[in-house]
């Protein structure tokens, strides 16, 4: 096991951990701003085409979106428990929990692909490719354009998160994280939780109301 090193600019490990976490929070806030632009665009279109948006939401695949909401909530729970397991020095349990989170992340992506396939069949596609026979309105076109962009950017983040979890599995299994020093693991799990938070907001605006 590699010893955890203290950067020379830090007085102690507590200060180093705090600096690393603060850096991660700033990064997550910047991610939030990326999605904020998309949320603002969605809000603008919804203000203009409110009735069309409500009709489009009623036509959207509620079951897929809802199952994915629960899948991501479960994944947030398992990844949070992995940190707890490391704090309890239960390395094997932590690895199992991280692998479970990866499996849930992959399940999310598979469900998303099934949903995309359904939208593709009914031609509920973005921009000029939108030819949905059931809903031939300009507002529905805007809704599904936003749907593809927002869920696409989110799915890209999920894919990155699954890869990151793979790295955390490797580091945890090799004993890099200990009960006293596991900041790297915490930072990685924070990224996964942000993915969950984004879906917590995407789910109601794209599927519920």
């Amino acid at each position: 096991m590699r010893a955890h090193s203290l950067g020379e600019q830090y007085a102690d490990f507590a200060q180093q951990d705090h600096a690393l976490k603060l850096g991660m929070w700033v990064f997550l806030a910047s991610e939030l701003l990326l999605f904020a632009a998309l949320f603002a665009l969605y809000a603008a279109y919804r203000t203009m085409y409110g009735d069309d948006f409500r009709e489009a939401i009623a036509h959207n695949t509620l079951a897929y979106g809802t199952v994915n909401m629960y899948v991501l909530l479960c994944s947030s729970f398992t990844v949070a428990l992995s940190v707890w397991a490391v704090r309890q020095s239960r390395r094997v349990l932590a690895v199992v929990l991280l692998l479970s989170t990866m499996a849930l992340g992959i399940a999310f992506l598979v469900i998303k692909l099934l949903e995309y396939a359904e939208h593709f069949r009914e031609r509920a596609l973005p921009g000029p490719y939108f030819h949905m026979a059931e809903l031939p309105t300009f507002g529905a076109n805007r809704f599904f354009t936003m749907y593809w962009v927002m869920t696409g950017v989110h799915a890209f983040h999920v894919t990155g998160g699954v890869c990151l979890l793979g790295w955390l599995v490797h580091r945890t299994w090799s004993g890099h994280y200990t009960a006293a020093h596991h900041t790297g693991l915490e930072l990685g799990t924070m990224y996964w939780h942000l993915i969950d938070i984004i879906w917590i907001f995407l789910w109601p605006i794209l599927y519920l109301a």
């Binding site: 705090h18 976490k21 603060l22 929070w25 700033v26 997550l28 806030a29 939030l32 701003l33 904020a36 632009a37 949320f39 603002a40 809000a43």
Partner: peptide
């Protein structure tokens, strides 16, 4: 650390 998220959420609210 809480301030970071608070400011981020304020920016989101302002923008939207």
């Amino acid at each position: 650390n809480r301030i970071t998220m608070l400011v981020g959420l304020m920016f989101v609210s302002l923008l939207v």
